[in-house]
Design a protein around this nucleic acid. Structure first.
Lengths: 105, 105
DNA sequence: CATGAATATGTCAGATTTGACATATTCGTT
DNA sequence: AACGAATATGTCAAATCTGACATATTCATG
């Protein structure tokens, strides 16, 4: 955001901050969430690539449609374990997992 | 193992197999465990590099010495989440995490 | 715009993971 | 060998995660 715009907003009483500041995330929390979101995006991409519905994928994973939805949303109640195991279940290799994480955000 | 040695053992009544066959691990379970072990080794290496005791690291992570020990042992009751968050807490970046996983086993 | 299929959201009992503690074992030093 | 420091192992109540279900919302297509 440019400095002028920010000053205009602040003059009107807005507080201008970054998401991390607002949510008070530490760097490690930020990194952790980034990784989860990275994997959840990959999960969705792969499912759509395979033309599977969330229900169909859930059946493969022995999970449920609602949990797949939450996985793809990167919901806080979804563990990295579940995301990673799901990706492996879809045929992803550890090397491919490494490539996912290597992507710059 | 060479074929002769294997045949000798089998003649004596031993069953020669791979760990996966013996434990009946699916490929995705194998991959998941491999990743966990990879990260646990990295955790130990980094801790030792920093000359920290398990107790000292536990204090940093707001965890306990016994849990750090279990993390480094790759124990089944330790989640990927805990391992990854611990590494991030030690200053590892997502890119460095990717490099860890890219290592061939 | 209706209707059905896909996806999202909320909830919860059961399963798993957690830090903490006690105690055992290993390891380096004297 | 004896000591202390570090690490390992076992256990458990509390916290977190899970699949399942009900229901709401979104989306495509006639």
């Amino acid at each position: 955001m440019d400095k002028n715009k920010q000053q205009q907003l602040e003059a009107k009483g807005w507080v201008v901050t970054t998401p991390e500041e607002f949510l008070e995330l530490t760097p490690e929390e930020t990194a952790y969430i980034e990784v989860k979101l990275l994997l959840s995006r990959n999960l969705r991409e792969r499912r759509e690539m395979l033309n599977l519905s969330q229900q169909a994928l859930a059946d493969m994973l022995e999970s449920s449609q609602s949990r797949v939805s939450k996985m793809e949303a990167g919901a806080p109640t979804v563990s990295l374990d579940l995301l990673v195991r799901s990706l492996f279940h879809m045929g992803v290799t550890p090397t491919e997992l490494a490539d996912m994480l290597a992507v710059k955000t």
